[in-house]
Computed example of a mutant assay.
Amino acid sequence: MIHEVTRGQARNGEVSLAYEMFGPSTGEPLLLIMGVGAQMLLWHEDFCLELVRRGFQVVRMDNRDAGLSTHLTHLGEPRLSDLIMRPKAAARYSLGDMAADAIAVLDDLGWPSANVVGGSLGGMIAQTMAIEHPRRLRSLTSIMSSPSARIGRATIRTSMKVAALLKHPVNTAEEAGQQLIDTYRIIGTPADTYPLDDKWLEEIGALSFQRAHDPAGKLRQQAAMLAAPDRRKALAALRLPTLVMHGTADPMIRPAGARATAEAVPGAKLVMMPGVGHGAFPREVWPIMIDNICAIAE
């Protein structure tokens, strides 16, 4: 197993994008993009290393307004009322801008093209990359995502539970670790299906707090997601190996999002993971995920 990690910074105009690379340059290039407010760390290092073992050179990145990438604090904090009622007015940038950030990472790596895997908002960014930069993708994998923020969206009850949890301020790394655990107890895989890795989540939550704690940045990312147009018509024009994966128990982006994505892209493969929730993928389903990623990338 290769454990060496190479760190880099790419640039897209004023935005600097932090990334980490695993594996030798001889591996098939694969880029991992994470979701709203999440840092690259939520792509478990062991998951990345297993992909390396299967023949990939793996890069995980921090989106703008997350982690060690640029935080666009000068753009201000969107109002919650605008996020709900007027998302286009709330948006400070677009999914197209975030897709261009990921392309800048490919450029910095010297990758003419790559297999792109995105989770949640990251899946929406990956879809946008495929639409706007089709020659840069070898394959597209969209996980726990949707072609529109309005398809498969969370129930009011789930949204209220998450909002109630996140309204409590986090002031220490320890509190951040506990908040991440509590968040995935709401949106993650139910404990009676697969147990949460509380220890890992606590560590990642604390480390993420130390790298960057930016609730306003998360809102700016949400605004970009909510303001984006429905991508189904554009996805229908893709001619690209496409994999769509989703948990049947995902309460944050419900399975309708996966079905709509797979139905939109010609020839897309849909893989539903029974009992799996949103994010923090249980180790028990890694073999299914990685086998399918490998198959679509070949």
Score class of each variant (00 low, 15 high):
Ser16Arg: 03
Ala104Asn: 08
Gln39Glu: 11
Ile84Gln: 15
Gly8Arg: 00
Arg231Pro: 11
Asn292Ile: 01
Asp46Ala: 10
Pro255Ile: 13
Arg54Pro: 10
Gln9Asn: 06
Arg138Gln: 12
Met245Tyr: 12
His168Leu: 13
Ala216Gln: 05
Gly118Gln: 05
Val5Thr: 00
Ile181Leu: 03
Gly13Met: 02
Asp250Glu: 11
Thr158Ile: 14
Ala126Ile: 01
Cys294Arg: 14
Val162Lys: 07
Ala102Phe: 03
Asp214Tyr: 14
Lys199Tyr: 14
Lys167Ser: 15
Arg157Asp: 15
Ile33Ser: 00
Tyr184Val: 09
Gly177Leu: 04
Ser159Phe: 13
Ala114Cys: 07
Met21Ser: 13
Gly27Met: 04
Ala100Asp: 14
Ala236Arg: 13
Val162Asn: 07
Lys218Asp: 08
Pro251Phe: 09
Arg254His: 11
Ile288Glu: 14
Leu95Asp: 01
Met144Tyr: 11
Pro134Phe: 06
Leu240Lys: 14
Gly119Phe: 10
Met129Thr: 02
Pro274Arg: 14
Val244Tyr: 08
Ile143Val: 15
Ile253Pro: 12
Ala38Gln: 11
Ile288Gln: 13
Ile204Glu: 07
Val271Pro: 03
Ala100Gly: 12
Ile186Trp: 05
Ile181Asp: 01
Leu140Tyr: 04
Asp192Glu: 14
His213Ser: 01
Glu14His: 08
Val105Gly: 06
Thr70Ile: 03
Arg232Cys: 09
Ala91Gln: 06
Pro241Trp: 04
Trp111Met: 13
Ile293Gln: 03
Asp250Tyr: 12
Ala10Lys: 00
Arg153Ala: 15
Gly23Arg: 00
Thr155Tyr: 15
Leu31Thr: 00
Ala206Ile: 05
Gln179Glu: 07
Arg60Asp: 02
Gly257Met: 05
His3Phe: 01
Arg92Val: 07
Asp65Ser: 00
Met144His: 06
Ile131Phe: 03
Val285Gln: 04
Phe47Cys: 09
Ser139Lys: 03
Thr242Lys: 08
Thr183Gln: 08
Leu109Asn: 02
Phe209Asn: 01
Val285Ser: 03
Glu202Lys: 11
Ala280His: 06
Arg60Tyr: 04
Met129Pro: 03
Glu202Phe: 08
Leu238Asp: 09
Ala104Gly: 05
Arg231Asp: 06
Asp97Cys: 00
Pro229Ser: 07
Ile125Glu: 03
Leu235Gly: 09
Gly23Thr: 00
Ala280Asn: 09
Arg185His: 14
Cys294Gly: 11
Asp97His: 02
Ile288Val: 15
Tyr194Gln: 04
Arg86Tyr: 15
Ala126Phe: 03
Phe47Leu: 09
Ala100Leu: 13
Arg220His: 04
Met61Tyr: 03
Pro87Thr: 10
Arg254Pro: 12
His133Trp: 13
Ile84Asp: 15
Ala234Ile: 05
Arg150Trp: 05
Glu202Ile: 04
Glu175Tyr: 08
Tyr19Pro: 00
Arg211Leu: 07
Phe22Met: 06
Gly257Asn: 04
Arg283Asp: 14
Cys48Glu: 04
Ser208Ala: 14
Ser142Ile: 02
Thr189Asp: 09
His133Thr: 10
Lys161Asn: 15
Trp111Glu: 11
Ala297Pro: 05
Leu180Cys: 06
Val105Trp: 03
Leu121Val: 05
Leu31Tyr: 01
Ala224His: 02
Tyr184Cys: 08
Ala256His: 08
Glu263Leu: 09
Ile151Tyr: 02
Gly279Thr: 07
Ala191Thr: 15
Leu51Asp: 09
Ile2Tyr: 03
Gly277Phe: 06
Ile131Leu: 01
Ala38Leu: 10
Arg11Tyr: 00
Asn115Trp: 07
Asp250Gly: 12
